[in-house]
Nucleic acid binder design. Structure first.
Lengths: 181, 181, 181, 181
DNA sequence: TATGAATGAGGGTTCATTCAT
DNA sequence: TATGAATGAACCCTCATTCAT
């Protein structure tokens, strides 16, 4: 349900009741339960809806033999594009992952981690190839991530700049910043 | 209440009940109401607890005649230090600001904006002084912010690196990235 | 439906949902309503399924001119046999008769009463013929009934003893106990 | 809560809602939860309310060196008296024990079993002392129990006979029935 | 004969808050 | 300052039942 993502994004998972949702859909509360199994499942599904395209797209476009700079630029664009396309979903993903049931959390966290590994790998390869000066790979990765992820709070789909343009601004800063002179 | 910040940070504002809180404090639920006025007030107070020190410290240390690079480096250190010192508070600040009542939200947002202005001002002065190449000041500011803010999710108080060290990693990347060659 | 009796017996009438039932049958919930009219009807039908054979068999085998001792022995065997053959049904009959709708309850109660009358009649004839020493016919009848009915809770279809053997143990105790010396 | 026992007895555990209960008590539904922890706890508590006095009284009055006939007569009186005094509680005990949560069920079943052992022990001692002719101790015990337990369905506190008088009718039948001639 | 979708009512339980003590 | 009792509203979810297909 798209509606769920929008409501969860706006009011938080715990701040959204299934009544809110059913009213937004023009359904009775009970009717909802023909389509979903539980509120928890909804949350899980929203998480997947964001992380799966992100991971798929990344694994399709990033290869180990790529130029590390190109890799980071590409990841930047993918990430920003997916954030733009799945705005509500990212919001939930980043705000409400703590509300995931323990068993469902595991799979999501693994995928999250898998995505982050693409970034760390690119950084490491850049170092190995003498392209980057990086004092701490994990922290640098988290900086890269934070810079992009935060966009879920301010990215404007009708804004002046396209997601890819913003991505280029960020990756330019980042790559220049890492560059070995 | 420190306990409230910890619980809100862990379970979200809506995910934390006043019973949870009163139990964590070893008080009766009713007793709580001798110390607070409402759950909403608690949320507001936590927001202030984070934004006030951040803004105070920033306004004390940043002056318009400072070197813009030094300004950003200083803001970076302040921000990371405050995030480290007020971990639970930042978490609530960044996750649950939507739950603030409308009227209370205003003041917080103003302070948030005031802090961000310090960053934009530094960027602008860097441009004016021919130090930075910045294609878009607001977006660059948001990138800077995101890079730092995200630390609330991963910063480890007992970690390898001190907040200031992490701040230096970030501001180094950022300043190198902006530098006009 | 046999399945209904089994489920009602296991979880009680109110503790069993029509969804439970439809799942046990491998049907859609709606499909159920092609075969039954309501949950209430199901309950009624289960009651009849037990009381009818019991009453039929009893009325077929017990005559007013029978030896009262033989009558009780026969009733004992019939009752225990029907309990054994309709285990789930008796369980519902004895546990959930309160859940019957008022109008449907009447007919069932009449049949229940009719069956009990066979016992009281046999007792009374035994007294009249100077065979039994009975201080209170209704209470003695209820003792007889309780002794047998309770078997719905413990009777094991694969147990050591056949229902008729158990019946003989009970009627022997009872008849010896009533015997006028 | 006495009220709970009465309602559960009348409508069954699953057939009684906490709203029914709260209305019967003149309380709000939520207020109930200051006094109980859950509906399940209520059920458990009712079970204990019946089995504890029964078991206590029995263990106080029955000793291994007693005359077995006297033992059975005493148990009969105790059981009937407790049934009379805790009518609603027995009803729930005998009708709704399946609804007990698994972990709570265990303790209850153990006590139930402990009580039944007093009966079987008396029967066995009667056999050993050459007083009783018993073809099957467990079955005979269950007959004894059923005869008494069933009283929960018909015992009238304002009836003609006192519980002890009924008990005497039953134990007379039973003991005469077992007597070795 | 079968079923997916729909629903109002109600299930047990927790919520933030108040108030008398 | 502290608290037990109270409450109306709301929580997630399931109920028995209906109806169009």
């Amino acid at each position: 349900m798209d509606a769920a993502a929008i409501l969860f994004a706006a009011n938080g998972y715990h701040g959204t009741s299934l009544r809110d949702l059913s009213e937004a859909l023009g359904l009775g509360k009970a009717t909802l339960y023909h389509h979903i199994e539980s509120k928890d499942e909804l949350l899980f599904w929203i998480h997947e809806q964001f992380i799966n395209p992100l991971l798929d797209e990344t694994s399709r476009k990033i290869t180990p033999d790529m130029d590390p700079r190109e890799a980071l630029r590409t990841i930047s664009r993918i990430l920003m594009r997916v954030i733009a396309d799945y705005r509500s979903y990212v919001t939930v993903f980043l705000n409400d992952w703590r509300a995931l049931s323990a068993e469902r959390s595991v799979g999501i966290m693994e995928k999250r981690e898998a995505f982050e590994r693409y970034i760390r790998d690119a950084l490491q390869r850049g170092i190995d190839q003498g392209l980057f000066r990086v004092s701490d790979v994990p922290v640098t990765c988290l900086g890269f991530l934070g810079m992009h992820n935060y966009a879920y709070q301010w990215l404007d789909p009708n804004g002046r700049l396209q997601p890819e343009e913003i991505a280029d601004i960020f990756s330019t800063i980042f790559l220049n910043g890492l560059e070995k002179k």
